[in-house]
Amino acid sequence: MILTDVLGSDVVDNSGQRLGEVSDVRFAVDASPGQLLSKARMVGIVVSPRTASSFLGYERRGITQPWPVAQLLRWRHRGSFLVLWEDIAVIGPREVVLRPGFTAYESTLAF
């Protein structure tokens, strides 16, 4: 599977209700070390209710400058959330289906 196949796919819950679009895919590099860098394991997907174009990730990081560009982009991505791999039932280029009773996590990064 290729990453950009997933980016921009619609995200729906198990009843088919649309929740937004995949705006990013999160990975963690934390397994036992490989040759140079450990494996990058998929943590989950970032879902944005409005737009898939992540652009700058302002909504996930504490950056507030330059005003008002930062504020504008944050506002475009308000309400975006993270869904973990365990809660994903199907991934495809058109649609990502979540499992029943999925949990929405904050999409912020630890910067």
């Binding site: 950056i63 400058q65 330059p66 560009v69 930062a70 910067f111």
Partner: peptide, 9 residues
Amino acid sequence: ILIVANDPQ
């Protein structure tokens, strides 16, 4: 450039 000049990363 204006945006990146504000990006701590």
